[in-house]
Design a protein around this nucleic acid. Structure first.
Lengths: 248, 248
DNA sequence: GGCTTACAACATACTCGGTAGTATGCATTT
DNA sequence: AAATGCATACTACCGAGTATGTTGTAAGCC
């Protein structure tokens, strides 16, 4: 029963001893301990028609009220639906949250990896990545707000058994993401296109400055892509050059 | 009844139509619209013997689990006490949260205002303030984690009537705090001890980078004051000089 | 200095609304 | 006719706030 090849419809489940719907590892026979890129341990429906709306509504609710203050009924209400619809796709509120988180991370990865493949010195590529990160954070700010919240989810959802696994996968995703920036900085340090006394903290400072946008940034009415572009540029500039005047 | 000079014991209350304990504005007859530094609209006991422990426990719980996931019983359990003790001093969970928030802001103000009074160019004083902010954030990281959460409290606790006032006071405190940095940067821009194309975003980036520490920073076992000093220095440095190499 | 009174500083016991999760019903599609 | 894609109805529990009881202690009185 568990592990049949039916890849058409898999409810997002985490733990539980239930009989029919407990499907923890789905895509093929995943050996425990795998950490594939992009595909976490939890899974959604294949065609994202129904879920996209749910994800969108959930992301908005989680952003506005936070995880625990958001009720499933809140999400359903925003959808113009009821709990039944949500629980048809997700086994628990936590699973829903993690799926929003995963979606957000996916979008970040896509944006930043594209930027990292651009030509130029490692230093300028790092700047591009930071700008891409800022831009993606603005364009998907509801999802990214959830991603930010997810950092705190260390002990919170550690209740269910295999739910812990999905959380580990999410945490791993975060680490890999930060490593993307870190390794680019290391390259830049080697070829002299960047300087840093403590690369780890330099990255944390830069990413922190941008992630903090999820606190204060809200899209203005009539905001254009050019506006966001300018904003991203202006938030990255002080990180590149600092506020100390340059002489020479 | 309301507004008597009894400054010895005032329960922290926000709204409510209750008879005996509704004391919203206490220190003298505060005209509505005042924005005094340090003294918010809500108030605690004068001698902080009993509350200090409550604040400490509450800050720890709020940091670990967040506001809405923390129950009053959680705080009481950490205190080795019961609800009764907490509700003896605070009228609601929200009031408790705001008091932790206020305490955190008070400590930040104290640290940064001291730093801003130091000699040197405006640019170097700004750097000192940022470092002081980082240091205070580490030394009071439980409280500061609550302060960070407080940013999201816009719509959340807007339920009770006069509770809204205390929230406004808190928000005002935050703005004044950021303005401390902003005006110092403006001074530095005038005398040429700092550069910035967009002062507002430069401040947001710098403060964001440091505030983000409340996400990843946790005191190590056996950590010394010198360790924190070094950490503060290393987090501020990239903000001053950037990661782009300086020529000349 | 004893006695009482009153209040502070809690603990205990209870209410009651909200919420996660479940069970089931029902229409539509395949 | 079987499964999908929901909605409706129900349960069980947790948690905020309240009401009330209990103990220590300082104050007033003689």
């Amino acid at each position: 029963m568990a592990g049949n090849g039916n890849a058409g419809k898999a409810k997002t489940v985490s733990g539980k001893t239930a009989t029919s719907k407990a499907v923890t590892g789905k895509t093929g026979a995943g050996t425990a301990g795998e950490a594939m890129a992009g595909g976490s341990t939890l899974e959604i429906r294949s065609d994202g028609t129904g879920n996209a709306d749910i994800l969108e509504a959930a992301a908005a609710c989680f952003m506005e009220q936070g995880f625990s203050a958001t009720s499933i009924d809140d999400v359903a209400r925003r959808l113009g639906a009821t709990k039944g619809r949500i629980y048809h796709y997700y086994a628990s509120k936590t699973d829903l949250f993690f799926d929003v988180h995963r979606e957000g991370m996916d979008r970040l990865f896509a944006a930043v990896e594209t930027a990292s493949a651009m030509p130029g010195t490692a230093g300028s590529r790092l700047a591009r990545m930071l700008k891409a990160h800022a831009l993606a954070s603005m364009e998907n700010h509801t999802y990214i707000a959830v991603v930010v919240q997810g950092v705190h989810m260390h002990r919170l959802a550690a209740t269910t058994p295999a739910q812990r696994r999905t959380l580990d996968a999410v945490m791993d995703m975060r680490r890999r993401y930060e490593r993307l920036f870190r390794s680019m900085l290391d390259t830049a340090l080697e070829d002299g296109s960047a300087i840093s006394e403590s690369p780890s903290l330099t990255i944390k400072a830069a990413l922190g400055a941008i992630n903090w946008m999820s606190i204060w940034y809200r899209p203005k009415a009539g905001e254009t892509a050019a506006d966001r572009e300018a904003l991203a540029e202006q938030i990255v500039r002080p990180l590149r050059f600092g506020f100390e005047p340059r002489r020479g």
